[in-house]
Computed example of a mutant assay.
Amino acid sequence: MSRVIVLSGGESTEHQVSLASGADVAESLATQHPVMPIRIDRAGMWWMEGVNTAFTASDILDELEPDDVVFPVLHGGWGENGGLQHELETRGIRYVGCSAAACRVGMSKLATARAAVRGGVPTIPTRVLRRSSYLADPDLHAAALARVADWPLIVKPDAGGSSVGVAVVSSLRELRAALDVAFELDPVVLLQPLIRGAEVSVGVWNGSEHALRATGGSLVHLPEGETAFSYDHKYSGAGGWLEIPATFPAPILHDLQAAALSVAEAVGVAGLARIDFFVTAEGVVLNEINTMPGLRRESHFPRLVSAAGTSYDELLDGLVRRAARASGRSADDRWTGPGIRTARTIGA
């Protein structure tokens, strides 16, 4: 039976969300596999449970056994944007989840939209802003955008998740403030119209015995007068809630599942992903994809899979067994992001 190295934490803005996911994943898998939980701190150092010493990524990865499987329960940053996956592929280490190439596409909302269009799935009209040009004259850029804006607008960093840095704005002043926040998080920021429609998510996954398949859908319910599902709604009890499984007319559910599988194929999903849509009067429109969705027992994605008939424990075990059967993946030479940290090991 494969030993599973569960990674959580990391340097991204979703550090705490990842720690919560990692704790539940490790607890579940420990009933069926030997598990080594590893916490990655905000400085990028790796901590083994019960060992009062910090390690670099190389220290740990260099010592893994051939049958080990890495489960990167990491949201955002190097753990989800393809950097870690590239390092694992370079070493021939088996791991759960999407390839480095798929993670790179999935981490970028813009790249995901481009892939979806190639797959025939409608996407949200988007204006792309880059930090370098915006900072040359923020007042000029913001004023020019405001003159042609169809308020309200959604401002969001291109990369990242958990709705961090996402804002709904309805004035020049709000736009300036939202752009300042978003550009602190990402050099590429997207402006989109507020879509009037139901916010819906579909999970896709393939465990040890089956090909990629789609769950039913969830439906976001927001407090009266609010327009977007935010970080506070997801994690801070701000009043939003998810209906899982949600009831849709059969043609809409068919379109949602078909669109989810089309997007997953276009991005190159393997293992698991959650894909978010709007259902409008015109039909299904892609919002974004998450190639490593939250994995607490009560998180959105596991609840979708559970409603489709696969329990949390079965989901995780299937993902690990699928990864364990895979051969070591070949590294993608096109990766140009940062490599693993090479700092010396430090004592606590």
Rank of each mutant, 00 (worst) to 15 (best):
F71G: 07
P72C: 09
P72W: 02
P72R: 04
P72V: 09
V73I: 14
V73Q: 10
V73K: 03
H75L: 13
H75W: 10
H75I: 13
G76M: 06
G77F: 07
W78P: 02
G79W: 06
G79Y: 03
E80D: 14
N81P: 10
N81Y: 03
N81D: 15
N81G: 02
N81L: 07
G82A: 11
G82E: 04
G82M: 04
G83I: 03
G83T: 05
G83R: 05
L84V: 12
L84K: 04
L84G: 04
L84A: 02
Q85I: 05
Q85P: 08
E87V: 05
E87H: 02
E89T: 03
T90Q: 13
T90R: 15
T90S: 12
R91L: 02
R91T: 01
R91D: 01
R91V: 03
R91C: 01
R91W: 09
G92H: 01
G92R: 04
G92A: 06
I93Y: 01
R94G: 07
Y95H: 11
Y95M: 08
V96H: 05
V96D: 07
V96S: 08
V96T: 13
V96L: 12
V96R: 06
G97H: 07
G97K: 09
G97R: 05
C98F: 00
C98H: 00
C98R: 01
C98D: 05
S99T: 14
S99K: 02
S99C: 10
S99Q: 02
A100T: 04
A100Q: 11
A100S: 15
A100N: 07
A101I: 11
A102W: 00
A102P: 00
A102N: 10
C103P: 02
C103Q: 06
R104A: 15
R104H: 12
R104F: 07
V105Y: 08
V105H: 08
G106V: 03
G106R: 04
G106S: 12
M107A: 07
S108E: 04
S108C: 13
S108G: 11
S108K: 09
S108Y: 08
S108Q: 12
S108I: 11
L110C: 09
L110F: 11
A111L: 15
A111Y: 14
A111D: 14
T112P: 08
T112Q: 06
A113S: 12
A113I: 01
A113Q: 06
A113T: 04
A113E: 03
A113P: 02
R114F: 14
R114I: 15
R114M: 15
R114Y: 14
A115W: 11
A115L: 13
A115P: 12
A116T: 02
A116P: 02
A116N: 04
A116K: 05
V117H: 09
V117M: 10
R118N: 14
R118E: 15
R118F: 14
R118A: 15
G119V: 11
G119N: 13
G120P: 03
G120D: 12
G120Q: 11
G120M: 11
